[in-house]
Design a protein around this nucleic acid. Structure first.
Lengths: 363, 363
DNA sequence: CGCATCGTTGGGAGCGCTCCCACGCTGCAC
DNA sequence: GTGCAGCGTGGGAGCGCTCCCAACGATGCG
């Protein structure tokens, strides 16, 4: 047992070279073992692995990235628009899912909050220069140029949530329509006669989906969806105050409303406020259902029936999808132009995860 | 205006070499301009900057890191213990602060969730190999070996929150003691006679601080803090159910309790539940104050009086502190052993940010 | 028995950058 | 006029790694 220990005392750990030397093999061979190449004899592999363990070798990412041309890192990009989605459990759960799924890889997670135009541009440039291998885009607005920009420079990217029905980029989304439909069907099933809704801002696709789910449920129940009944639909903005105002407006239009589906829990909280102000009980006078199953829902009085999305799973799925895209990009690059496979830009991966109704006392 | 554009078509952007060539200077000079070295003539600087702009040059981080030995990246480490602190606004606000402050640097933010022992070890090794330049540790437990390990390998690190009164590592914390004291003084000021408290888990320093603030306020008001009054102190665990049980226990010990300071909003929500179960009104029968000013507080019925910490500012301060430490480490390394400065390990930077009482209807 | 083949292996050639040494050149003192 | 700082500057030498090609011994075949 040679007394090899005094090397690389202060700083950075041992190098591949040192590992190779200790294992009595060449640099190339050591590299092969570490990267799991099959073309190595069992004996050699064992020797190198022993050396790695003894020296506590950790590959230098920078060197690896430089030599291999890939960064072993993906960016999670969060546009910090009014930090709405940010404080919600949404973000942290996505993060947890992403991180969990990434834990098995030795891919790095780079977190990028985009605050303004300047930040966006900076990131765009950064991505264009291929400083990351892939990008996860959380809650992009429909008019954000970033997604298409990324596609143009050939940077693999996955969206959380579609921007429109015809989303042409890879995405993972939850089934907002069906979720909303279930919520409203639940309300109808409880015998409610006048089921109204406070929608999200209708320039957001997610809001339109939930509204459509509302309509779908009414239609399925054989109830009119005629324009004359549109007075039971009010557009909100996903804020508490918006929910409150929406509820007040509904009550003004029709005091006999006995159920409201709010397109977000926060708006439901606002609606709850309005109901209290006007002396109505929940759920006796008006049943309330939200969407998101955020903390607010559990803590409302009464606890709010709501629709849960599998957010953590969405994060995980996004990562899986992105890694897949990255591998595909990797394979496509070297030569093989028109193989039999035919991965046209048309078959972008997409995934719709199921939503679930959480019944609580508000309905 | 030469028609130079067809270079580096598909992949990665232009290199320093290309920039230098275009500017008609050497590689070294171009590097100097880009890194803002003062030893460059004005003319040359302008020429290089023009070339950079024309080519859309973005330095290759990997190469820079490899050559310079620094990674231009810091890690934000979040131990994902029961994801408690994670869902709270705490985490997202810290993140916002960190990200904002980092926006001015071109430092990268690496997010690392540590889920288990294995993850911890992995990160420790990672850090030991100097794969990042600094570490931000969020909500470490007192028995976590990571902080000291980082110090041992000379990795700059800043904690959010002390682990004990004698924290010997750089930290940023909020004034929990004074915050709690203000809360309880407020309760006393409102004429409450029997002010109780549900603490956090007392093996956490933050919980002990808040408890001490409670005692301090009582003492300042000339009220007994004798052991006989300890029946007004119940240990909770920062969970809703813990708060509920704590409140029930308090009520059992003394049904005439008329005010409770809960060491977290979530526990206050639990306490609120218990009060409702036992038919007590808030604030008429029992006044309630929480801590954190989380979303729950605003949405409780009635809205919860609570203590706000400047969390985003804490994030920013942590980054500033860490960058400072990193610069210092940078300077210390080259030669200059015992300069006049005398930066012994004793004067670790530390910062205590003020807390603020947010008055709402629950008190 | 010689030659092609295959499974392994060693190590050179960079990846793009920073560091640093050496090289003009100018300006000034001698 | 010679000497010598000092400023800008160019470019070599790596940083630690992966990629790849040549080389090697052990086989298998004609």
């Amino acid at each position: 047992m040679p007394a090899a220990r005094a090397e690389g005392a202060g700083k950075s750990g041992p190098t591949l070279e040192q590992v190779a030397a200790r294992a009595g093999v060449g640099r190339g061979t050591a590299s092969r073992v570490i990267n799991g190449s099959p073309r190595v004899s069992e004996r050699t592999r064992a020797a190198v692995q022993a050396a790695v363990a003894e020296l506590g070798y950790v590959p230098n990412r920078a060197a690896r990235a430089l030599a291999a041309g890939s960064m072993d890192a993906i960016a999670l990009v969060v546009p910090e628009q009014e930090n709405r989605l940010f404080a919600e459990p949404y973000f942290s759960e996505i993060l947890r899912g992403v991180s969990t799924e990434l834990g098995d890889t030795d891919m790095q997670l780079l977190l990028t909050l985009i605050r303004d135009e300047r930040g966006r541009e900076r990131f765009a440039q950064y991505a264009a220069a291929h400083r990351v291998d892939g990008v996860l885009l959380v809650s992009v607005h429909g008019d954000d140029p970033l997604p298409d920009l990324l596609r143009d420079v050939g940077m693999p990217a996955v969206l959380s949530g579609r921007r429109s029905h015809a989303e042409h980029l890879p995405y993972v989304d939850s089934d907002n329509l069906l979720g909303a439909q279930m919520a409203v069907e639940h309300l109808i099933g409880r015998g409610r006669r006048k089921v109204a809704t406070v929608t999200g801002p209708l320039d957001m696709y997610v809001a339109r989906c939930r509204l459509e789910g509302y309509h779908e449920a009414l239609r399925a129940a054989g109830r009119s969806t005629a324009p004359t009944d549109e007075h039971l639909v009010v557009e909100g903005d996903f804020t508490e105050e918006g929910g409150r105002r929406g509820m007040l407006e509904l009550l003004r239009r029709d005091p006999e409303v006995d159920a409201v589906f709010c397109a977000s829990d926060v708006m439901a909280a606002g609606a709850r406020l309005a109901l209290r102000e006007t002396g109505r009980d929940v759920p006796e006078d008006v049943a309330l259902v939200g969407f998101d199953d955020s903390a607010v829902a559990r803590h409302m009085d009464p606890p709010l029936t709501t629709v849960r999305q599998p957010i953590e799973e969405m994060g995980r799925a996004m990562v899986r999808m992105l890694l897949d895209l990255m591998a595909r990009a990797q394979d496509d690059a070297p030569g093989r132009a028109g193989t039999g496979g035919g991965n046209s830009t048309q078959d972008q991966p997409r995934l719709l995860l199921p939503t679930e109704l959480i019944r609580r006392r508000s309905s």
